[in-house]
Write a protein that binds this DNA or RNA. Sequence first.
RNA 1: GCCGGGAUGGGGUAGCCUGGUUAUCCUUGGGGACUGUGGAUCCCCGGACGCGCGUUCAAAUCGCGCUCUCGGCCCCA
Length: 415
Amino acid sequence: MIQRPRGTRDFGPEEMEVRRHFEDMMRQESVLHGFREISTPIFEHTELFTLKSGPGVVEEIYAFQDKGGREICLRPELTASVMRFFVSDLATLPRPLKMFYFGQCFRYERPQAGRYREFFQFGAEIVGNPTPETDAEAIGLAAAILERTGLKDYRIRVGHIGILREMLANAGVTGDKALPILQKLDKKIYPEAEELMAQAGIETKVAQDIIGTTKVTGPISVLDSREGPASDYIRQVCDILLAMGFGNVSVDLGVVRGLAYYTGMVFEVDAPKLGAEKQICGGGSYSLSELFGGEKVFSTGFAIGFDRTLLALQTEGVPFVKRSITAFVVPVGDSVRTKAFEIASTLRRSGISADVDLMRRGVGKSLKYAATVPSRYAVIVGEKELESNSVTLRDMSSGEQTLVKMNDLVEKLKV
RNA sequence: GCCGGGAUGGGGUAGCCUGGUUAUCCUUGGGGACUGUGGAUCCCCGGACGCGCGUUCAAAUCGCGCUCUCGGCCCCA
């Protein structure tokens, strides 16, 4: 027996129905918000990701040389591909450019709860100038999608890179020198952050204030005592979200991100019921296009962990509707088997889902199968019925049977 | 990369410590009883010890290695 590769999954018919259901739901919601779908290759030049995330990422991705000696990798995320696409082909489209995408990504990591080597991401990006409106629209789409899935227990936390950057800048630490400190603060390793800040000449009192800031969480009112452009900015984003009807948004200044391309607002969504891997969505505003050789453009985007979202829905017991077919055509005896296909095909051409016996089973077994599938109706075709150019239509839930003229069958089933 | 629990028909399980019959029970799949009426019942059939090496007269059981899996650490673009 051949086992499936580590960290991958097979999806059976039932599971795929559920997955497609939510996938379609996310697409529809995005279209409602004026976003348009794009798609990029599953493999890319490895350089795309080392440019964005540093040479270290190669250790964590599926990277290899192809037969032509090119350095290739399976994409570990989608934002880099989207921005590459933007720079090469989409830069002349009118802005804001609102795009969404869905697809699988690959990371060479140790699998655990909610973490796989092949996983699925749904995401969106808005390319244009950064305004609180843009950021609110991006968070708003993520929130609307999660709301529509029926998920109840999740928190949206919004922060702003600028708040800590402003404090560090006031203390005399700017630009690249601030990055290592932000990284430690992001990971909440406070002793090392203190040490770095001391080395940078920041007074202990100010350093403590900065660390205290990363612990500020709660409703928008926690910003009331704070001044400065970044705080004002978050207030505006939150006001818009509130007006859009998304009340479950809180402020968390501990959402930091120690990467240089994040420029302003950052946000995360987590579902507390999941285990160690409970973050189901993350995003923020960033500037990446210039890294890939394009003009400098600001964007805001997010990615939803599709698999984790489904896991969260599962733990909450959100019900999934099992799909059924409308009609199962049952031939009575060998003489009418071909006729059964003719009828099934007529139904299918009329857009009615229909199945037909392939196993040459008797009427009893066929009806049993039709009940299990399940099918709403059974269309019983026998010589007796055909004499009057009719079939017997059986409602599988009530057991009620009626003789129906062949010409009326499609109308009867269209309801 | 690190720590621990696992892997027995399609699914769920017993057996393993203490090696030895035809490997248990439930379920699922196919056929039949029922050559024109379903989820019931009865009968029949199919189907498994993750992979490899070793110890042994004999391995699901003991030893070693590997693969996959579940949970946690690290990481998380």
